[in-house]
């Protein structure tokens, strides 16, 4: 079943970076994720390219197929259309940016095939 949207995507939510710095969710930049992962002992940033976006099991859901990392592993996730992903160099993006903005006041771009999203993996897997 699709993953419900968690509260930290609400505009104004306070996010703690790995170095302890606090930022609002809407102010996060690509560098914040990269720098936080660099000082994390467990987590590593991967680049996950959107390969396909299909309808999900329910009207408000989509299945997004990602090509993950250097190995281009194919991973599908089912999420609500308003669920935001962080696109490298662009910021928050969702399949239905109007709905994301309406529900969470978080400005979003439209998530498209070919967009490269920030994702995480374990360092020990590499």
């Amino acid at each position: 079943s699709p993953v419900a949207l968690p509260p930290f995507f609400m505009r104004g939510s306070i996010i703690q970076l790995a170095d302890g710095e606090l930022k609002r969710v809407e102010d996060l930049k690509t560098e914040d994720f990269i720098q936080s992962a660099e000082i994390s002992s467990e987590l590593k940033i991967d680049s996950s390219t959107v390969e396909r976006i299909d309808s999900g099991q329910s009207p408000n859901a989509v299945v997004i197929q990602f090509s993950v990392g250097e190995l281009k592993a194919q991973v599908c996730v089912e999420v609500l259309v308003e669920y935001p992903f962080f696109v490298f160099g662009q910021g928050w993006s969702s399949c239905c940016p109007d709905r994301t903005t309406q529900l969470f006041e978080l400005s979003c771009a439209k998530l498209c095939v070919g967009d490269v999203c920030v994702s995480l993996t374990l360092r020990s897997l590499r």
């Binding site: 306070i14 996010i15 703690q16 993950v68 190995l71 194919q74 991973v75 599908c76 994702s119 995480l120």
Partner: peptide, 19 residues
């Protein structure tokens, strides 16, 4: 005011989740 960790905001994707 709740404070959320940075790694909550981006998905954890690995091949084992596929299929």
């Amino acid at each position: 005011v709740p404070v959320f960790p940075w790694h909550s905001l981006v998905p954890f994707l690995e091949p084992s989740q596929s299929g």
